[in-house]
Amino acid sequence: MKDLFAFENVNVTIDDTKVLGDVTLGIPSGHLTLVAGASGSGKTSLLRLCNRLDVPTAGTVRFRGADLDDLDPLALRRRVGMVFQQPVLFGGTVADNLRVAAPEATQDQLTAALAGVELGTEFLERIGDDLSGGEAQRVCLARALLCRPEVLLMDEPTAALHPAARRALETTVQALQSDGKVDVIWVTHDMDQISRMADHLVVLAEGDVLYAGPPGSAEAEAALATLAEEVG
């Protein structure tokens, strides 16, 4: 079975600084993959390569076996959704925000999208600026899901949330993944989150892969111990 994403000798350099160095890595489909690393380890850069918001300086990134260079980036991004670290809401109501992803969506479809992230219909008319961080991030998730992606890229989506909202979002995304609706790649440096969520693990340090594979092995624990030291 082809990997969901395959990185072949991928390098990313920005202003002569190494961000990712010769990364060769496979991320399997059917998993919730946690990409863990300290600040500056290259985990967000790795994620941004997956939907082509960035391109590698050298090397190849493949999605289900196809070279990303050969895929239409707009179609790719609808297949590979992304939720960012800070919730990004545009002006207007929640309904307006959802329609940015699906302009033709009916009221029922919008309601269903909110229900999928455990928000009630009453949120549709709420103004984006009035939402809490957790609610805003759920709206962002609902918006991404309206594109019916095969994969969700989650870039430290709970970093700005309080613990209760953090756990709630984790549970929602875990449910989506275990229902087989989407594959998930979740970037984090939260050690507790890694132990709660990962069923596949990638650990990065200074642009290099320390570990890639299932969690729980001695090798995985060693990589996580190194990470724990780095993040304090």
């Binding site: 918001l53 707009l74 179609a75 960012f84 991404a144």
Partner: peptide, 20 residues
Amino acid sequence: RPEVEARLALGHSSTQAGRP
């Protein structure tokens, strides 16, 4: 930039994402 990239990530073209 975050808003523009959020729009791009939803599959908008650069023209659509940058128009507002």
